[in-house]
Simulated scan of single mutants.
Amino acid sequence: MIQIYPFDTEGFFLGQPETLEPDPGTGKYKIPDNATNIPPVKDGQGMWRPWFDSEKQEWIEKADQKYKDSLKGPADPPSPLDQLKAQSAATMVQLAEAQNLIESQAKMIADLLLMLAEGGET
């Protein structure tokens, strides 16, 4: 018994390997015209959209980046913990901005008071 990899009329892998039994009379394997015993891998890696080149007897990757992105689907929504972390980070940024503003205003008030104490002249 061997595994074969069927492909459609355009040469694209159908997605599931099949097992093939040898011919009971001859003991030889008769691989159908729309299949191969070559696995659809390249450099030891699987492929997104394998296409079989019958002349070269090899699988070729036919997926472009747009096709790959279309298979990924939407991202999982953030967990409640991740949402709280994001809110906490945003609050910390707002707090730091508010603290900087307070320090800036305190310096401005101190400068104005000093100017008044010196007689109001610049």
Rank of each mutant, 00 (worst) to 15 (best):
E21F: 10
D53P: 10
G15F: 14
G11V: 01
D23Q: 10
F12S: 01
E61Q: 06
T19H: 13
Q57M: 15
D53N: 15
P32D: 06
E18C: 10
D43W: 13
D53T: 05
E10R: 14
V41M: 12
K42H: 06
E58W: 00
I31T: 09
P50C: 09
G46C: 03
F12Q: 03
P22K: 12
Q45P: 00
K30A: 00
K30N: 00
K30I: 01
W48C: 04
S54M: 14
L14F: 01
E61V: 08
G11C: 04
E10P: 02
P32L: 10
D53Q: 07
W48G: 01
A63M: 04
P50R: 04
F12D: 01
L14E: 12
E58C: 01
I60R: 02
N37F: 09
P40M: 10
P40R: 10
N34F: 13
F52I: 05
K28G: 01
E61S: 03
G46T: 11
S54E: 15
K42G: 01
Q45E: 08
F52V: 02
F13R: 02
T19K: 15
N34H: 14
G44L: 13
G25N: 14
L20F: 12
Q16I: 10
W59D: 00
N37D: 14
D33W: 02
K30E: 00
I38M: 08
F12I: 01
W59K: 03
G27L: 05
Q45N: 03
P24F: 07
